[in-house]
């Protein structure tokens, strides 16, 4: 691994283990999540129920799913703004194919494959052609959404088989945990292992810290990024199928704007937009924090505009606060130093 990685990631080896584990950004977010949950349960009527949890998980499932690969993309220093459009495209594809007589399972499979292709196209433009991902995915955001709306036009496909719909919205008997969360759990473990415990994952972090340093140390930067974009497209398409079945309606405008919710949650979860820093448990907590807050605020009859203001402020506060505290500390330190210097 390169010097940069060592310096930035393992800077705190001087600290005892418990401090290194407890005093992280991720722990802070998890603590915030727990605090919000506790305060809501105590003060918001109807919040403390299994139903809240079930709805919360159903509402955030699509964001949770997409946040997994998105975290890795952002850790490499790239971004994918086209995810919500891939959700829409996959939703429309499932609808059109199913309406055209293709069996549901095959339709879903084709939609997921199309998502992989959409992701590969993003990845191709970023890694092979060498374009900035921000610009590429702004373009494909419009392109994929345009294809989705173009394919289905004024109609919406609605008559999906009940078995599939139940699978999307049903819960594990006796618990408020939806089945989709089980799928998410499996994926989360897989992604967690991939990112945090494999050479591939170390490569992802190394790329985020420095593209060229990573390349010199033998990491195949282009291939890694391409794989991540394909993963993002694939998972987004899967989320699109879930979205379609959950609401029972395949529409071209499904999940419009979801990309911002995903990215906001990932950043809130402690992933650095510069790349090279972040962890999946923080991201998952970040998604759930935003979800829990809006669920609690809705139950407290707070209107959607205020919820948006709070989401935005929370995002800014979470990214600004480390810099502000650093700035304050530096000032204090400097003042202390200058006082010490002037003493003798």
């Amino acid at each position: 691994m390169t010097d940069a990685t060592t310096v930035r990631t393992y800077r705190d080896y001087g600290q005892p283990l418990w401090r290194r584990i407890l005093l992280t950004r991720e722990t802070g977010i998890i603590a915030a999540l727990a605090a919000v949950f506790a305060v809501s349960a105590a003060s918001v009527p109807n919040f403390a129920s299994e139903l809240t949890l079930q709805y919360l998980l159903l509402d955030t499932a699509a964001i949770l799913l997409i946040a997994l690969p998105m975290t890795m993309v952002i850790v490499t220093g790239e971004i994918d703004l086209s995810v919500a459009s891939v959700v829409g495209l996959s939703s429309v594809l499932v609808g059109v194919l199913y309406q055209g007589g293709v069996p549901m399972a095959l339709a879903a499979l084709i939609a997921v494959a199309a998502g992989a292709v959409a992701g590969a196209f993003n990845g191709f433009l970023v890694t092979v052609v060498g374009l900035p991902s921000l610009a590429v995915t702004i373009g494909t955001l419009a392109l994929y959404r345009g294809l989705a709306v173009g394919l289905l036009g004024t109609t919406a496909v609605t008559d999906f088989p009940d078995g599939w719909r139940d699978a999307a919205t049903g819960t594990i008997p006796g618990t408020p945990i939806p089945w989709v969360i089980v799928v998410f759990g499996v994926l989360a473990v897989a992604f967690g292992l991939l990112l945090h415990f494999t050479p591939f994952g170390r490569g992802v972090f190394a790329i985020g810290l420095s593209d060229s340093a990573a390349a010199f140390s033998g990491i195949r930067v282009g291939r890694t990024k391409l794989i991540l974009f394909v993963l993002t497209g694939t998972v987004s398409a899967f989320a699109g199928i879930y979205f379609t079945l959950r609401y029972g309606s395949a529409r071209g405008d499904n999940a419009t704007g979801l990309e911002l919710a995903v990215i906001a949650a990932v950043l809130l979860g402690g992933v650095s937009i510069f790349g090279g820093r972040g962890a999946l448990h923080g991201v998952i907590a970040g998604v759930l924090l935003i979800g829990t807050l809006s669920s609690a605020l809705r139950l407290a009859n707070v209107t959607s505009d205020v919820i948006n203001i709070i989401t935005g402020t929370l995002l800014i506060a979470s990214v600004v606060s480390p810099s502000v505290t650093a700035w304050v500390r530096n000032r204090w330190a400097r003042r202390g130093r200058s006082a010490a210097v002037s003493q003798p």
């Binding site: 722990t27 919000v36 924090l289 929370l314």
Partner: peptide, 17 residues
């Protein structure tokens, strides 16, 4: 520092609630 960032978030979220 990160911890403080997290705490600030928690504080803000708590306040909102």
């Amino acid at each position: 520092l990160m911890k403080r960032g997290g705490m600030a978030v928690a504080a803000l979220a708590g306040m909102a609630l």
